[in-house]
């Protein structure tokens, strides 16, 4: 049952990326091109997603536990450390260069495999390097996460 739920969640998420056009890096770059020919449509993706999630989370998080597991896994940290600045800077530069963030990179892998594979494999390498901490000293600060 849990696997069916996570499958369905991934399917709907990816469907949202496709319907909204966020799967297309050219469109994402159009959205990020604030000082050029700005394509505002993706602001509605973010807005719609945050609206629905805020309402849903508010209802769900009042419950003692999720329907299929023992507890909610919500990040508890509130501190602002150097990794929380450096990580998003690196991510933002990479996102701006190509227009792919992690979710669309997975969906685009199927829609356009050849064009997506170099970025996708490099992204997994980057995640592995970040996760395994020995290359990026900054990532040591979140060892517990």
């Amino acid at each position: 049952m849990k696997l069916a739920i996570s499958f369905l969640s991934g399917l709907i998420f990816s469907g949202g990326l496709i319907v909204s056009g966020m799967i297309n890096p050219a469109k994402v770059i159009g959205f990020l091109d604030l000082f050029g020919q700005w394509d505002a449509s993706l602001a509605f993706v973010m807005g719609g997603a945050v609206l629905v999630t805020s309402i849903g989370y508010n209802l769900i998080l009042e419950k003692p536990k999720p329907l299929l597991s023992e507890s909610f896994s919500i990040p508890q940290r509130t501190d602002i450390d150097s990794a929380l600045v450096a990580g998003p800077v690196l991510f933002g530069v990479g996102w701006g260069l190509v227009g792919l963030c992690p979710g669309p990179a997975f969906a685009a892998l199927i829609a356009s495999p050849l064009a997506t594979i170099p970025f996708f494999l490099a992204m997994l390498l980057g995640m592995w390097l970040g996760r395994n901490k020995f290359v990026f000293p900054l990532s040591r600060t979140h060892a517990s996460s």
């Binding site: 996570s6 949202g16 449509s41 993706v45 997603a49 999720p66 597991s69």
Partner: peptide
């Protein structure tokens, strides 16, 4: 379409939290 897509992304996040208690962070 962007709004519909965004709503779908939100529903996916709500679903993962409601059933499993996980944040939908790719």
């Amino acid at each position: 379409l962007a709004l519909i897509g965004g709503t779908m992304i939100g529903l996916a996040a709500v679903m993962l939290m409601a059933f499993q208690g996980n944040v939908m962070g790719i």
